[in-house]
Amino acid sequence: MGRVTTEFDRVSSAKYVLLTTFRKDGTPVATPLWAAADGDRLLMWTVTDSYKVKRIRRNPEVTVAACDARGKPKGPEVPARAVILDAADTDHTRDVIARKYGILGWLTMKGSLVRRGKTGTIGLAVTADDR
C-alpha cells in the first residue's frame, strides 16, 4: 500500500512556498520563499536578521501554502511548526535548495555567501503540525 499524499506533501513539492509567521498581536505576515523537501520536513532559507526569524523565535507556529513567485496562494494553508537551524543544518539546507532549483539555486546560494557570509543567512525547518 502506497504512502498517502498529504496537503503538506503538495506544499513541499511546490516551486514557491508561502510561509506565514505571526506578530505578537497575532497579525499574520506571509512571505514567499524557496523551499525543498527533506524527509518529513520542509527546508527554507532566509536572511538571519529578518523579522520572520525573530517572529519564529518567539512563536514557532506558522502556516505554509503553495504559492506563485509573488506570494499569491495556490492552495490551502497547512498549520506547521518552524525551527531555526544551526550552522551545519543551514549548510545542508543550502545544498538541498540548490539541488532542487538547479543552476539558479546554486548561483543564488553562492552569491548570497559572497554577499552576506555564512552567518548572514539561516535555514528553517518546517514540519506539519497535527493541530
Results as ranks from 00 to 15, higher is better:
R3P: 00
V4R: 14
T5N: 02
T6G: 09
T6A: 03
F8R: 03
R10I: 00
S12T: 08
A14S: 15
K15H: 13
V17I: 14
L18K: 02
T21C: 11
T21E: 07
F22I: 02
K24R: 15
P28T: 06
V29T: 12
V29F: 01
T31D: 01
P32W: 01
W34M: 02
G39N: 12
R41Y: 06
L42Q: 07
L42A: 08
T46W: 01
T46Q: 10
T48S: 14
D49M: 11
S50A: 13
R55T: 02
I56F: 01
R57Y: 04
P60Y: 00
V62Y: 01
A65D: 09
A66F: 05
C67R: 00
D68G: 12
R70N: 07
G71P: 03
G71Q: 06
P79C: 09
P79V: 13
A80N: 06
I84Q: 01
L85Y: 01
A87N: 10
H92A: 13
T93W: 05
D95P: 05
A98D: 02
A98T: 11
K100P: 07
L104C: 05
W106A: 14
L107R: 12
K110V: 14
S112V: 10
G117E: 08
T119Y: 07
T119V: 09
G120W: 10
T121D: 05
G123E: 09
V126S: 01
